[in-house]
Design a protein around this nucleic acid. Structure first.
Length: 256
DNA sequence: AACATGAGCAACCGCAACGGT
DNA sequence: CACCGTTGCGGTTGCTCATGT
């Protein structure tokens, strides 16, 4: 086992902070398993890494979250769920832990009450067209263009009939049109579900797409269910409107 | 003044993914 | 391909401080 007996836990002292800071200034943010030894700290590597990333790192922004940051957190959380590292990657100077803590203490209650309101409203007004989260995948070669909300390569899904255009245009063009429609909020055809083969090896979920375009040091790829099927009719407590796609696109452009 | 309660935040823990062998 | 060590993430815990009773 890597953690020696008697390893120190709990709050960090100023002396420990200084040792860790000097060590990382000297050796860099690599090989965390060697950091405790190099720094002369009786801490486990996890503790050292966490302390550095959440507190000691030079560019960390302290203090109150600004209104635009809060708004971005709310929107990204709606889009991504509890992907704190991804969300933090869009907030310069903020750590995943900061974002998570802020969410849990300030925003969770608000969104819960908001969701309850939407749920209640949905019961009264019936159903709306939604973009529903579902496992869906994209080619690993997808690139977001700087000038347009277009992806170059194949868009794949568990249900191609919903995710690809019904026209017989050139595949790239038709997908571009489809994406433009999605991101511009145009209406969609009601798609009939049909199963189709899914190429597991060459596809990746959209969250990974975000990660590939996010700032260095963000998480590696992992699966999740943040994809959205269009044209479904479901209660409003599940909806995710098209404007959010526009937001997603807007935010994406900022960081490319 | 003493105690209870809740909010905010730092830190820990468990797990999954990744990369090397 | 399997195994193992390392890394990084999200959930949870626990400490501190402010506020209420």
């Amino acid at each position: 086992m890597e953690i020696p007996l008697g390893v120190r836990k709990g709050a960090w002292t100023e002396e420990e902070d200084n040792l860790l800071r000097k060590c990382i200034e000297k050796y860099g943010e690599e090989k965390w398993h060697q950091i405790p030894l190099r720094a002369g700290l009786n801490r486990c590597r996890k503790s050292c890494r966490l302390r550095w990333l959440n507190y000691l790192k030079p560019n960390i922004k302290r203090g109150e979250f600004e209104a635009d940051e809060v708004e971005l957190i709310l929107r990204l959380h709606k889009l991504l769920g509890n992907r704190w590292s991804l969300i933090a990657g869009r907030l310069p100077g903020r750590t995943a832990n900061d974002v998570k803590n802020y969410w849990n203490t300030h925003l969770r209650k608000k969104t819960v009450s908001c969701n309850e309101y939407i749920k209640e409203k949905g019961r009264k007004t019936g159903t709306v067209n939604i973009i529903r989260p579902r496992p869906q995948a994209f080619s690993k070669n997808i690139r977001w263009l700087k000038d347009k909300s277009i992806v170059e390569n194949t868009v794949q899904s568990e249900d191609n009939s919903l995710c690809q255009p019904s026209t017989t245009l050139d595949p790239q063009d038709s997908e571009s049109v489809w994406w433009e429609n999605v991101l511009s909020g145009k209406e969609f055809d009601q798609g009939a579900s049909s199963s189709s083969g899914r190429q597991e090896e060459e596809v990746m979920p959209m969250a990974n797409l975000l990660e590939e375009n996010s700032s260095p040091g963000t998480t590696k790829g992992e699966e999740n269910n943040i994809f959205y099927e269009v044209g479904q009719t479901l209660p409003t407590d599940l909806w995710l409107d098209v404007n959010l796609w526009n937001l997603f696109n807007t935010e994406q452009q900022k960081f490319i």
